[in-house]
Design a protein around this nucleic acid. Sequence first.
DNA 1: TCTTGACTTGGACTGTGTCCATCGTAGGAT
DNA 2: ATCCTACGATGGACACAGTCCAAGTCAAGA
Lengths: 136, 136
Amino acid sequence: MSDLLHRLRGRGWRMTSQRRVVAEVLDGDHVHLTADEVHARAAERLPEISRATVYNTLGELAALGEIAEVSTIGRAKRYDPNAHHPHQHLVCSRCGTVRDVHPTGDPLADLPPAEQFGFTLTEAEVTYRGLCPDCA
Amino acid sequence: MSDLLHRLRGRGWRMTSQRRVVAEVLDGDHVHLTADEVHARAAERLPEISRATVYNTLGELAALGEIAEVSTIGRAKRYDPNAHHPHQHLVCSRCGTVRDVHPTGDPLADLPPAEQFGFTLTEAEVTYRGLCPDCA
DNA sequence: TCTTGACTTGGACTGTGTCCATCGTAGGAT
DNA sequence: ATCCTACGATGGACACAGTCCAAGTCAAGA
């Protein structure tokens, strides 16, 4: 994830220990942490980091497109650092576990212009729901 | 929506003025209200209805499959009474407006078995995001 | 090394939703 | 028609997710 830190520097970000730690926590594939989980893991390395800073940093990273916010129904947002590799999510309806999946086809192409109602489309998010093997 | 009230009766629901009003508020197509909006509209007809009752009733209707919960990112859940007619949603990233859309193809069929990881799939929800004509 | 404005902090605050003890009432029983 | 009672409604306290703000801190350019 030093790539990320490098890119952020290039965008004029001031590098702080807090931001570095948040970026490190989000390193890796198949990571789908809530903001509070990010805060807990960051606090292991930097005990005095505040929730506000974690929220700020996650929000900025999402606005820059470096991480993706995963939508949920009635749960806390999850943050996905795998934003540069298009994929979708498979969510357990009971326990909320998230897995990355790669469906065939391009959902954006499946929406005919007549169904776009003048919107400027930016994204098609597909969420598969079901019960994971543990909950079934 | 007397169909709905009828079906609920058949399922052993006790009919109360509160439940009737909530069901009436949710009548119609292309309705995507938050729980508080449902409460506000219900309160116009039945001023003393409580938030808890609205939440309970919406939760029960959703559990019965009579209405669908629409997932959001960082906003209040919205409830869609059009649950018996499969469709997807187009959401404005700025103002949160929701429109029903009907993409071609079947997203559930786009997930190969090797990508299902032992989950028992029940649903594929597609959310198109972009800016609506007013916000663009 | 100095300076400065961007960043961090923690606590208060808001919005969304849940829980619970108590009261009320729909609808079956008589 | 009236009574009973279990199911539903109430509202206030509570919990969780997230935001805001004033004050203090510090990264990095001069």
